[in-house]
């Protein structure tokens, strides 16, 4: 925001930079839908405890890249490693187990409408992680407390506001103790006054040292909380760097054009 030094984001945070290799490594990732090449040789490393913020015009491949990381989209080629383990090489049960380590938060929340908030947060803990029910419930309550919604444990998702639903979705992902959290436009479907509550939870997560990749248009949040901002356009990473550099001193013409379109309000 101001010119004040963004004092070395990542300091004073547990977990950060204790690994000698990146938590998430994306190497030469390509994705094609039919004849359309959506991603062209994406390389991106995310260090443990780092918050990487991905920006870019719609259709630039941001979401596709994120969805390749947990194989909701199947990469056409390239490799993805999580904490040194190949995400792209596993299949069947091994892929299910891998996905437990990769939390994902969707634009549309996707809470299970037929299950209570508590049951939403417990389901995968019990059925995929094979946690004991009592343990899963305790963990779920702890996570709901983290996102400030312990009092809504017995509510049905349909009774919550969008912001509350998204926080439950974050709790649902966190309860599985993932190594990385992927956020796919987590606030884009929210009314403006509800955005803050979700961003607050994300900031809190960052302070706890969670490794996060965030695709979003919340530029204020990027400035405040991101360790690194990645600008994608046309399926490639055009530019990446600390937020002050990306926003204050963009080097590529495409990024400058994107930022000026944003400032004029609307892509």
């Amino acid at each position: 925001m101001s010119a004040a030094p963004h004092a070395a984001p990542g300091t004073h945070r547990p977990n950060s930079r204790v690994h000698d290799r990146p938590m998430l490594e994306i190497n030469k990732l390509e994705k094609q839908f039919g004849d359309v090449r959506v991603l062209t040789s994406i390389d991106l490393n995310v260090e443990a405890g780092e918050l990487v913020f991905v920006i870019g015009p719609s259709g630039s491949g941001k979401s596709t890249m994120l969805r390749c990381c947990n194989r909701l989209e199947e990469p056409t080629s390239g490799s993805i490693l999580l904490d040194g383990e190949h995400v792209t090489a596993c299949h069947g049960r091994a892929l299910d187990r891998m996905r437990l380590k990769i939390g994902m938060v969707f634009q549309g929340f996707h809470l299970y409408p037929h299950k209570s908030v508590l049951a939403n947060v417990m389901l995968a803990q019990v059925k995929a992680l094979k946690r004991d029910k009592a343990v899963a419930q305790a963990r779920a309550m702890e996570m709901l407390d983290t996102v400030g919604l312990a009092h809504k444990a017995d509510a049905m998702p349909g009774e919550l506001s969008g912001g509350q639903q998204q926080r439950v979705a974050i709790a649902r992902a966190l309860a599985l103790d993932p190594k990385v959290m992927l956020f796919d436009e987590p606030t884009s479907a929210l009314d403006p006054e509800l955005v803050g509550s979700v961003l607050k939870v994300m900031k809190q997560l960052r302070e706890q040292g969670m490794t996060m990749v965030v695709v979003s248009h919340e530029m204020e949040f990027a400035r405040e909380a991101a360790d690194r901002v990645v600008f994608m356009d046309g399926g490639v990473v055009v530019e990446s760097g600390p937020p002050e550099q990306i926003f204050g001193n963009p080097s590529s013409e495409r990024l400058r054009a994107f930022l000026s379109r944003l400032r004029k309000g609307g892509e």
Partner: peptide
């Protein structure tokens, strides 16, 4: 909605679990 399946699979549930539980 497709998102229901994706939420299930993304949290490590198998196809069958996602089908039966979600």
């Amino acid at each position: 909605p497709k998102g229901q399946w994706e939420a299930g699979r993304a949290t490590g549930l198998s196809f069958a679990r996602t089908l039966f539980d979600i």
